[in-house]
Nucleic acid binder design. Structure first.
Lengths: 135, 135
DNA sequence: GTATTCCTTAGAGTTAACTCTAGGTCAAGC
DNA sequence: GCTTGACCTAGAGTTAACTCTAAGGAATAC
């Protein structure tokens, strides 16, 4: 079975070795085994698990909560419901973030055309009429 | 003309007065005037500007870069191009964030059905076959 | 056999963005 | 005229998530 060193995993996941050790310190990687002399030894499944961790992180989940999830995983089938509920919550959270981003995008696009017009006119005064524009 | 105190603005924008003072300290609100005894006096346009600041913040822009933008605004028409370019960059950035979120959402949804199946079966072993699942 | 290059740990330092405290001013209510 | 409450500042403290340093172990290169 193919295994990986910490720096190989860091490269693969676009993280630093510092970050990976930090995650380990925080209890996010209890599954990673060691060589006889103490070096971390990553399996494919470990990299898969780290990808799930990265996914949770990208939903804005703090590391402490990710640790709770990892702990649930170690506890086995008795925590299936908690884990399911967690992902349902994450889903709602991501949906809300998408909504937020859409609103942000609308404002940004408005500003893009605002500045295009101003730039073409050579002055922002072209937008004097607008109520709350100003910048 | 209607004006607002710092706590009214905080309430309106769902920020704390601490945060607003911090923004001011960082140079994000050079336009806010003061009463004779030194209290901040917010106009409607100031609230509009703060909404733009909040929008930029929600694109992930750090406060120092927002300050650069505010400085450009104070400099007038000579910075129109920089400001336009900045919003174009922000737009690309938000688009990338949306893409990221979509990918995240796909994984989350996969996990939701993974755990639904496992929960119904009473055990995660139902997914034994899967290559990189595990959690 | 020694230099290099990877790995290890504990713990200190950094950064951003707040968040709060202490000490003070000022206007309104009683 | 004094209390209350909202405002002010400077500066200290907090938190999360890294990020790095120091000191050392083990395998490989020459």
């Amino acid at each position: 079975m193919k295994t990986y060193t910490i720096s190989e995993v860091a490269k693969e996941l676009d993280l630093t070795v510092y970050t990976l050790r930090y995650y380990d310190k925080e209890g996010l990687m209890p599954f990673v085994e060691r060589t006889p002399n103490g070096n971390r030894l990553f399996k494919e499944t470990d990299i898969g698990a780290l990808k799930v961790i990265e996914c949770l992180k990208s939903t804005g989940m703090p590391i402490k909560e990710i640790k709770t999830f990892i702990d649930w995983c170690s506890e086995g089938d008795s925590t299936l419901e908690q884990r399911y509920n967690m992902f349902i919550e994450r889903k709602a959270n991501v949906e809300a973030q998408m909504e937020e981003l859409k609103k942000t995008m609308e404002i940004i696009q408005h500003k893009c055309s605002y500045y295009k017009t101003a730039m073409d006119a050579g002055t922002e005064d072209i937008h004097k009429e607008e109520k709350l524009a100003k910048m």
